[in-house]
Write a protein that binds this DNA or RNA. Structure first.
Lengths: 196, 196
DNA sequence: TAATTAAACGAACGTTCGTTTGATTAATAG
DNA sequence: CTATTAATCAAACGAACGTTCGTTTAATTA
């Protein structure tokens, strides 16, 4: 056999990326083999190379897609005019929802940075920092406006993002709480802590 | 050559575990080869098998060592008699300090769960939950005593631990803040949030 | 000192990995 | 209808993987 009936290159490429996300999310990048990936797509191992230059380049593409769309999505949503508290609550809601809805992307971005070649890693890290700056700016504006007491912006931003990102590692769709309820709990924790 | 001068089995075993932690921390478990590990120890690849039954069993041992000592160390430190706020602050301090001081153990435990065989994974996950119960109990006692307003214990515990664990992924010894200062910021965030 | 055990070597095992290549068939364009 | 391009297969490549094994040397015991 050679070319299969009804085969369309664009569809195969999409299928490869979808399958790769799924496999890397569950097994990890190094543990995923191109043979597993090809089998998941329903194609021979060599055929993957029509759409992907190398395994490393595949990971790089997935990471860049994710971090770029994370930045883009937030930029489109951000309401610059609002007060710091509202903006912070919006950020919490956005970050949690995004991380639940696109769990595979997020897990890959957070667990596989090590596997990314050094030449690409710096780029991803810098884009991630760019995203984190959004939160730092909100906190900074809040402190300037007197809405928040003085706090170390860098540490607070790291802490809050770690807290929010953590959700996608324990969230289950059939869990006790809805996404909105989980968001509410986190908004309260971020704003007021446990003593209120 | 065969047995080398001055070789002691116990020392070699220790060296293997130390080197494995370092390599897995930086490269990841799947990416680390036994040849790299052997080279780091200064020994031939086959010689590792005098001390380790298999690569998988090595990971399992490292994970179990870590999670057990985490539970043990906290149990020895916990002051049961104190008020919820003090206990919570103590937990924050302990968790951050432990995660900075034993970064390799922690990184492995958090990033390599996937690589652990399913038969061992359940055990580690259950022990981790046992550790997390310490925080849930503190929060629960605080709510009962009226020191904390009502909060979802499960979500709050996940959120706080994610926040604290996050420190070991960005902390640098030559950074701007000392460990104590970082702990203070986190204690304030956990207790009062950003609006105070 | 002789016998035994501990520790490591060196070489190889079969397997699997990522990747390349040339042939083959399906779809499309002239 | 024919020529060209797109998409895939089948087969193989060398390299590297985890692991095993018989041998050799150092240390310990009798």
């Amino acid at each position: 056999m050679a070319r299969t009936k009804g085969s369309v290159g664009a569809d195969t490429k999409t299928a490869i990326y979808v399958a790769a996300k799924k496999l890397i999310e569950t097994k990890g990048f190094e543990a995923m083999t191109l043979r597993q990936l090809a089998a998941e797509v329903g194609v021979q191992p060599g055929s993957v190379y029509r759409y992907v230059k190398s395994k490393d380049e595949l990971l790089q593409a997935l990471m860049n897609q994710h971090i770029s769309s994370l930045i883009e999505d937030w930029d489109q949503l951000e309401g610059k005019g609002e007060d710091p508290v509202s903006r912070l609550k919006a950020f919490v809601a956005f970050h949690i929802r995004y991380h639940i809805e696109r769990r595979a992307d997020v897990v890959i971005a957070n667990l596989e940075l090590r596997s990314l070649g050094e030449e690409y890693r710096a780029d991803v890290v810098s884009k991630r920092s760019q995203y984190e700056a959004n939160l730092r700016n909100i906190l900074s504006d809040g402190v300037k406006a007197g809405a928040f007491p003085k706090v170390d912006l860098e540490v607070a931003a790291y802490a809050i993002i770690a807290m929010l990102t953590g959700v996608c590692f324990w969230y289950r769709p059939d869990g006790r709480l809805s996404i909105d309820e989980i968001i509410e709990v986190h908004q309260k924790l971020v704003l007021q802590g446990v003593v209120g």
